[in-house]
Amino acid sequence: MSVGSGSTGSLLELDRLSVRFLLGRRGEVRAVTDASLRLERGRVLALVGESGCGKSVLASALLGLLPANAQVRGRAVTGDVELLSAPEQVLAERVRGRRIGLVPQSAGTHLTPVRTARSQLVEAIRALGSGAGPDELAERVGLRPDELDHYPHELSGGMAQRVAIALALAGDPPVLLADEPTTGLDRPLVHRTVDLLAETAADDRAVLLITHDLTAAKRVATDVAVMYASRIVEAGPAEEVFADPWHPYTAGLLGALPEGGFEPIPGHPPALTELDRLEREWGCVFCQRCPSGSCTGDPELRAHGDRWVAAHPPC
């Protein structure tokens, strides 16, 4: 994974993707700012950060699922489709389910309650023209074929999540976008879910794992991008970033884990309506929470080999 543009062979490429929500006279919400990422075949890119930082908005932008008051800039390309400018018909007929499969949060609530998992999976296969049958997809995600004959309320949380992954795979998309797929699951089910996503990446796909669960990200990610207050502040190979974080926000997230000492980051993330003002006054919007006091006031990412960091490069 690298941040920027100009890759060859990437399955999904974002170049300075920005999303703002217009609020009339009340101003605007700066939800995503200049996000640049590449998803490569066979890899799991974890996009991590506190809730409300803009991760899920980024996912919705890629699939054309933003509300009417959203303003989107930048580029996002998969294959020969520019996602941000593509009309709804192109997204519906060529992208959703076929180029990009979505694994949603709280899978059980996204399943139709009055239909069995099998009937919903058969419908998805028929709509997407997949060559795989429902039993084959069930086995691929670790379900017995007979478990597809259950209604959503008869499925455990883990089983519902596996059905959701099977639905995301029904059109055989090269990219899986998993938006907080472990919400509400206990730790063993979290492990099984992310392990299954990693297995799909190993099957010549790319996975974008959006999560605030750093333990899950550390378990399966090959690459990581850390998001704070709408911006990516650090990115690089997951093993390197987690072992030696360069940005104090990344270090703070790791320090809040049990193995990191349960030391929370002081303060709170800024309101997304205040980011323009804070950047004018402070430069980097993390400065008010930064324990080092060494902020350069520059929010732009800078490359250091195959790693990227904003405002706090190593020295």
Score class of each variant (00 low, 15 high):
A168T: 04
A225G: 08
T183Q: 12
Q71G: 12
V224K: 02
W282L: 15
L39Y: 03
L177H: 04
F21L: 06
T182C: 14
E13H: 03
D172S: 14
L37Q: 02
E93T: 15
S156I: 06
V114N: 13
E180Q: 11
P266H: 06
Y151N: 07
T8Y: 10
R162C: 09
E263Q: 10
G252P: 14
R38I: 00
H212S: 10
C290K: 07
T273P: 03
P181N: 13
R73I: 01
P269A: 14
R94K: 14
T112P: 01
A202M: 03
T78C: 15
H247G: 09
G293C: 07
L257Q: 11
R25T: 11
A235Y: 04
H304W: 04
Y249F: 13
L253C: 02
A160V: 12
R140G: 02
S85L: 11
E234S: 07
T215N: 07
R219F: 07
V190E: 13
D244P: 00
M227R: 07
L167T: 04
L167Y: 05
L84P: 12
W246C: 08
A251S: 11
L12V: 13
A168I: 01
A251D: 06
G267T: 06
L102G: 04
A238F: 07
R16S: 13
D149M: 13
L22E: 14
P188S: 10
V114R: 15
L257R: 02
R38C: 12
R25Q: 15
S18D: 09
L214S: 01
V220D: 01
V285S: 02
R192M: 07
E240V: 14
I265W: 02
E123A: 13
I232L: 14
T193A: 11
L102S: 05
L45A: 03
V175F: 03
V285E: 00
A117Q: 05
S56D: 05
H191M: 12
Q89S: 14
Q105S: 04
G283P: 02
P104N: 11
V163Y: 07
G24Y: 10
A235G: 06
E281G: 01
G293W: 02
D15M: 00
A303I: 00
H212Q: 13
E13V: 15
G6I: 06
A107Q: 02
A229Y: 00
E279I: 00
E147K: 11
